[in-house]
Amino acid sequence: MEKKITLSVKDLKKVIGRREIIKGLSFDLREGEVFGFLGPNGAGKTTTIRMLVGLIRPTSGTIHICGFNIREHFQNAMESLGCIVENPELYPYLSGYNNLLHFARMLEGIGEERIKEVTELVGLTERIHDKVKTYSLGMRQRLGIAQALLGNPKVLILDEPTNGLDPAGIREMREFIRFLAEQEGLSVLVSSHLLSEIQLLCDRVAIISKGAIIRIDTVEKLLSNRERVVWRLAPIDKGKQVLAAMTEIEEKEDGTILTEFDEQRTPEWNKQLVEAGVSVIEFHRKLPVLEDLFLELTGGETIA
């Protein structure tokens, strides 16, 4: 059975002055899904997210959150939404608890019990009564999430959630987001300019460039046919010859050779190389980096 659509965006446009910043985006989010929003800086990720959460008024197009149009039923729509836009900026002169209390007062029927619950969920119980200005970035990030979860949202929007976190923090955040989607059934929209992050975290990805979606697909599909194999061979000239006879090759400056990756054929190439007397020093699968993916998808457009 198809899962319920929680966030639906249709033909979203934003014109500032004469420039069309966002050129008609359409996509849907389903229950329990982590959706990635991938694009270089300046592609329109943040502008789009700000339109989704009601900070910026779209020039045209509609946004529905759990069936409510955010223009016509702002209050109902926002009740199902939790978000962090850019950094989790909270009041530094208030304690973590007072920050949560402050935002809980802006929601219907959210009391101290829920505050305690989300505090435990993000693991801040020990420091919750300290002033936010004494928190580390990771703790602020967690408080930001706690704040976003206060109102039991169905949709969670996180703009660059791992920005500024250390590797352990990034990993922790990733696991937490997966937990929210899988166990709690939330739809999570995550934006990032890092492919590796999106790849580990998301189910589906929209690639956005210059205000338009170039492609929406599942992570596996998007990456699988773009995987490459890096070969280090000796002697190199002979190796090149053997490989070129079987597939398309690309020579790199550092003396390695790139070919496509194919489950069946790649081992066969290796065998051929060895039989031809070429020593295979190294060969490994290489995932495409965002730059490469972009170059291919946009046909030469460089990352700004």
């Binding site: 900070l55 702002f74 939404l81 850019e86 900026e89 009041y91 935002f103 802006m106 929601l107 219907e108």
Partner: peptide
């Protein structure tokens, strides 16, 4: 930057 949190409440 807290205005972003303030204005995204219901």
């Amino acid at each position: 930057g807290t205005v972003k949190l303030l204005l995204t409440r219901p």
